[in-house]
Computed example of a mutant assay.
Amino acid sequence: MESVFTVWETSRNLYLDYFDKYTLEQLNKIPNGFNNNLIWNIGHIIVAQQALIYKGSNLKGYISDELFELYKHGTKPTGLITESEMEALKILLISMIEKTKTDFYNGIFNTYNERMTGTGFYLSSLMDAFEFNNYHEGLHLGHMMSIRKFI
């Protein structure tokens, strides 16, 4: 499990770099030909992790229903993110790692609801969900690498 967490931490630190390298205006920009922006991708991977790991285990998790609705699968940006909203996402991006690791090692994940993802991956266990989460975050990091070329 340590290697799964190490990959996840590395991925999240790559996402964190976007806050230092791009302005709020750039994070909010949706380039022609794209349907989302850099900041939406960051919000989305936060929400997706909470859904995959916590909701998949019948647990509430640590994000609000409002945040979930803004960034869940099938959504796109509905407006510009403010400085304070950006700061909140930045905190969640990193804080969810320690909270999830603590919860995992404290054994709060007792069940997992098997399911098929929208991309055709069958998740039969919590471990599958953690591994798929890393894959999913890698996909969105790739999307962001494409977007950044046009902002």
Rank of each mutant, 00 (worst) to 15 (best):
F68M: 06
F68K: 06
F68N: 08
F68V: 00
E69T: 06
Y71D: 07
Y71W: 13
K72Q: 15
H73E: 07
H73A: 08
G74C: 07
G74E: 09
G74N: 05
T75F: 12
T75H: 10
T75N: 13
T75C: 14
P77H: 03
T78N: 12
T78C: 04
T78F: 08
G79R: 13
G79D: 11
L80S: 13
L80P: 04
I81K: 08
I81S: 10
I81W: 06
T82A: 00
T82N: 00
S84F: 00
S84V: 09
S84Q: 14
S84E: 15
M86P: 00
M86H: 04
M86R: 15
M86T: 15
M86F: 05
M86C: 15
E87T: 07
E87F: 03
E87K: 12
L89Q: 02
L89W: 05
K90D: 00
K90H: 00
K90P: 00
I91C: 04
L92Y: 04
L93D: 01
I94Q: 08
I94N: 07
S95A: 06
M96I: 13
M96E: 14
I97S: 09
I97G: 03
I97L: 10
E98N: 11
E98G: 09
K99T: 10
K99E: 10
T100S: 12
T100Q: 08
T100F: 04
K101R: 14
T102R: 15
T102V: 14
T102K: 15
T102H: 15
T102F: 11
D103H: 03
D103A: 04
D103E: 05
D103N: 05
F104K: 07
Y105I: 05
Y105C: 02
N106K: 15
N106A: 15
N106D: 15
G107P: 06
G107V: 01
G107Q: 09
G107H: 13
I108S: 04
I108W: 10
I108C: 02
I108A: 00
I108Y: 05
F109T: 03
F109Q: 00
F109P: 02
F109D: 01
F109S: 02
F109W: 01
N110H: 06
N110V: 06
N110W: 02
T111N: 10
Y112P: 09
Y112N: 11
Y112A: 11
Y112E: 14
Y112L: 11
Y112M: 13
N113Q: 15
